[in-house]
Amino acid sequence: MQLEAMDRELMCSGHVGCPGCGATIAMRFALKTLGEKTIMVLPACCWSVIAGPFPQSSLKIPVIHTAFETGGATASGVRAALDMRGDEETTVVVWAGDGGTFDIGFQALSGAVERNENFIYICYDNEAYMNTGIQRSSSTPYGAWTTTTSGSDWKKLRKKNIVEALVAHRIPYAATANIAYPEDLVRKVRKARETKGSRFLHIYASCPTGWRIPAEMSVRIARMAVQTNIFPLYEVENGIDYTINVKPREYLVREYFKLQGRFRHLSEEDLDQIQGMVNEDWERLLRKAGERA
């Protein structure tokens, strides 16, 4: 794979992300594509720490650290300020975890995109509150262990479908992306940058620490999430037009689950049940994309 944008580097070494952190890979790809003319709004999340303690920063662009629930609102304000200065060139990006997007920051996000505020909201999804000690979020998938869904109380609720929630706002552009598919990810960030209005990207970012996986497996597991249809890669324009971007090899979901410590307790019956859920969601997506009658 040779991508021209890939030669640009706006992230520094020496950050304190865990070894094999998927969220840092996501940030590298995104910044390589967004370029220097970017202001990033960081509500509380892993990246609040990875971006560095004062006076250090691991990012070579301006960053505003903000409260957990205010990503959408702060970005709206930054955009308004830039507009007042006549700066249309700079892109405003919210970079939030799943907690700040699916749960705590959801009202600010929903309010901002309802107004079609002109920014990109990127959720890097590691499927729990990893930074504070692996507490479950509404993004934590069915079947997962977290410190708040431990033992036999593993999570028995499905993951919130955040892209569908955003699509329901009829925003200009919403898409999923994955750190194991850099070309697709880069294309989507570029497309988002070139679109006006509210744009939303949901990036799958594996977490070796919270998922109980070896650090070197984080990209392989991310790829497996796509190949098993657990995390399909697709985009939606204007809340209506669906396109599926990667045709999966359709491995069985157990191939994905067996690689991760957080799913170790699941029985064969549980896995069969999960396979059924994944199949159902995939069929629904195929219908939306017009690939099934």
Partner: peptide
């Protein structure tokens, strides 16, 4: 507003 003026490159994380 506090403004950062250094990069994280002074942390030699290779020690991990």
């Amino acid at each position: 507003m506090p403004r950062t003026f250094a990069t994280t490159e002074s942390n030699k994380t290779g020690a991990w």
